[in-house]
Structures are given as structure tokens and as C-alpha cells.
């Protein structure tokens, strides 16, 4: 009984355990060249070297700065535009075809064009993240505002509330859960866009770290970097966004919290 309970607890670690074992055995038996498959020890050592050598911290800060800048800008512009479109229907009708089209080419597709405008660096990466995040926030804001039951707005107006007061007390809080879901998935997409943008469009950052790994045939750097990228994404979602969503969506939302994506 106790055994099975412990096994149940340990089960989520099983895939990592299986992969590490297979990797270890493969490496022992086949002895592949380290530029193709490094040993686990190599990856750990490289990780420690990068972490204590200071390079990793610099790349991490560079990536985070771009992410924050792009996401903040995306949230601000997406919410403002989404708010205007949500409150004023003709604007939404007018913008809709453009949003569908530009959403389809959002993010990395802009890289070849915008690299000529902004050059390689922070501005380019931030633009690509903004471009990815904007549409998610915009669409969620419009949806959230349009889905606020009109009865509630009419209620406040019937009691003498002005247009602005109605928006402040009913429309915005009503739309907030949708906007925050948008923020959550926007950050996830922004993170992917960042890594893609940094592969070619930057000289620092975690994306550049793994890309330089392929130039110098350092599979250990790439594997360590990719695992780290996944870990950061997971921690951001778990510690930052899921709690925010729980507090707001579950509290004010008309729907249950969306399952993580």
C-alpha cells in the first residue's frame, strides 16, 4: 500500500528517468561523438560552466528584458486597440479582416523584412514578440468585452451611470478574465517567438546561446539550453500566470479557468 503510494508520487519523474537511462546506456554502448550526442556528465558540466562563468546570466537577462518589453508593449497596445474595437462595433468590423490576415503572419514571418528596418538586436526581438502577443491580447479583449452581458451594462445605465462609469464598473471587470487568459497564453507564445527571433536576430540571449552551440558543434550547450528554456517557460507559467489566473478568472470569470496551455 505504502509502496504503491510512493510509486504514484514518483510517476511524473518516470519519463525523465527513462530518457536519462536510455541516453546513458546508449552513450556507454555506442560511444557517439560528443558533437552529436554528448554524455550526461558533459551537459551537466557545461551547464555549470555557463552558469558560473556568467555568460548564462547575461543571456538570461537579455532574453528576459526583450520578453518583458515585447509582452508589456503587446499587452498595452492590444488592450487599448481591443478596448476600442470591443466598445465600438464598426471599428471591430473594419479591423477584423486585417486582424485575421496579420495574425496569420504574426511573429517570425516578419523577420526578413523588419531586420532591414531595425537591424539585428533588441529592437528586432522586441518587435517580433510584440507582434506575436498583440493579436492574442487584442482578440481576447474584444471577445471579453463583447461577451459581457448587455443587461448588466443597461442596469448600471438605468441607475444613472454615465458611459464612462459603465465601462469602468461593468465592462472592464467583466472582460478582465478573458484579457488575463490572453496575457497567459500571450506570454507563452511570446517566449516561443523570442527564442526563434534570437536564433538569427540577436547577438545575445538564450536563443543565440543554443544557436552558437550548433555553429561550434557543441550539442551539450544546445541540450542544456533547450532544457533550460523549457524549465523557464514552465516556472513562469506555474508561479506567475497560473496564480494570477486563479485569483481573477476563477473569482470574476463567467467560465471555469482554462486548462493550461
Amino acid at each position: 500500500m505504502i509502496f504503491s503510494r510512493v510509486a504514484w508520487k514518483l510517476l511524473p519523474a518516470a519519463p525523465a528517468f527513462v530518457i536519462l537511462t536510455a541516453w546513458f546506456v546508449y552513450w556507454l554502448v555506442v560511444r557517439p561523438p560528443p558533437s552529436v550526442i554528448p554524455s550526461i556528465a558533459d551537459v551537466v558540466r557545461t551547464g555549470a560552466e555557463l552558469a558560473f562563468g556568467g555568460r548564462l546570466l547575461g543571456d538570461f537577462i537579455a532574453s528576459m528584458g526583450r520578453l518583458l518589453g515585447g509582452v508589456a508593449f503587446g499587452i498595452a497596445t492590444g488592450m487599448i486597440m481591443g478596448f476600442v474595437a470591443g466598445v465600438c462595433r464598426p471599428v471591430a468590423t473594419f479591423l477584423n479582416p486585417l486582424v485575421v490576415f496579420f495574425n496569420a503572419i504574426s511573429g517570425i514571418v516578419w523577420l526578413p523584412l523588419v531586420i532591414g528596418w531595425l537591424g539585428v538586436g533588441n529592437a528586432l526581438a522586441t518587435f517580433l514578440i510584440w507582434n506575436t502577443v498583440f493579436f492574442i491580447i487584442f482578440q481576447n479583449t474584444v471577445l471579453g468585452i463583447q461577451l459581457v452581458p448587455e443587461v448588466l451594462e443597461q442596469g448600471v445605465r438605468a441607475l444613472g451611470g454615465g458611459r464612462w462609469e459603465t465601462i469602468r464598473t461593468v465592462t472592464l471587470p467583466g472582460a478582465l478574465p478573458y484579457i488575463l487568459s490572453g496575457v497567459r497564453s500571450g506570454l507563452g507564445f511570446g517566449w516561443r517567438a523570442l527564442i526563434a527571433a534570437e536564433l538569427v536576430g540577436a547577438t545575445t540571449g538564450l536563443g543565440q546561446l543554443i544557436f552558437s552551440g550548433s555553429e561550434y558543434h557543441r550539442a551539450d550547450i544546445i541540450i542544456f539550453g533547450a532544457l533550460l528554456i523549457g524549465a523557464i517557460a514552465m516556472l513562469m507559467d506555474r508561479w506567475l500566470l497560473a496564480p494570477i489566473e486563479r485569483r481573477t478568472v476563477v473569482r470574476w470569470g463567467l467560465v471555469a479557468a482554462s486548462r493550461g496551455r
Binding site: 507563452g188 517566449w191 516561443r192 527564442i195 526563434a196 536564433l199 536563443g207 543554443i210 544557436f211 552551440g213 550548433s214 550539442a219 544546445i222 541540450i223 539550453g225 533547450a226 532544457l227 528554456i229 523549457g230 524549465a231 523557464i232 517557460a233 514552465m234 507559467d237 496551455r261
Partner: peptide, 11 residues
């Protein structure tokens, strides 16, 4: 899901 495909591209 947190490691986008593109992050594996160098490998």
C-alpha cells in the same frame, strides 16, 4: 510544450 520546436533546431 514549453520548449518550442525551434529551440531543438540547432540540435
Amino acid at each position: 510544450q514549453g520548449i518550442s520546436g525551434i529551440a531543438w533546431l540547432p540540435l
